[in-house]
Amino acid sequence: MNHVDPELRDQLAAEYALGALNGPDRHRFEQLLSGDRDLRNLVEDWELRLNLLAESAPAVEPPAHVWSEIARQIAPAPAPIPEGWLDRLWDSLGFWRAAAALAAATAAALVLYVVFLPPSVVPDQIVALDERLARIEDATRGLASRVEAVAARPTHVAVLLDKDQRPMMTADLDIADGRLVLRLNLTPPRDFSANMLEVWLVSPDGTRRSLGLFPSERPGTTTAFVLPHDTAEALAKAALAVSLEPRGGSRIGQPSGPVLFTGALMPVAL
């Protein structure tokens, strides 16, 4: 086919715009279109001419839910719920370090207090103080493990960028315990009414396997996956990708929707 012949180009553009091309003809023409702006313009002109025929289409009232769904989808995005100071505090390592230190200090003071108890203190009071001490120690233990969890040092990190190089998500991987902590920084401009984010391991050879679904599209959402040791090892030398999938995740074992952002894992010790 001579695709320089203006008459042929126009004829194919018209046939494509009409939707008459099928199979390999249609496929070949679409390949031509992708690299040929003038041809795309020809097609668009034909489409705009022919689609005036839609005015003569038999009108059928669509059911009401069609509009309500459109209205829902174009509704202004709700202002992101500001993360409360308490949430931030809860996530902050410094807070937990300080809280743990404070708790430990309180416990120590109480021990001293008990040890240097004046003789006038009655046994009942000692029992009560013992109980309080035990409770404080319990609380301190809880805090200590929490501090450890927050402070767990990742061995690998990744920043997942979208096509505009925005840092959409950050990932911390600890290959020792297989913990992968993901934090969504920005909400992708996608429709999440029936979709959600799915996280994929992309091996250097291009194979992809699902690591799981990300629970929310709200910015600031953090989630942790605990991976089997060999998966964590593989991930350390691979990349993460996040795709948009129908609720419940991709049904084909591969990303079925668009891949929104990706990033390779890097060891923290360069």
Partner: peptide, 15 residues
């Protein structure tokens, strides 16, 4: 300038 609104709309739906 390129086409009528209805044709523009129908183009999206029909394509």
């Amino acid at each position: 300038g390129r086409g009528a609104a209805m044709a523009w709309l129908a183009r999206i739906v029909r394509n």
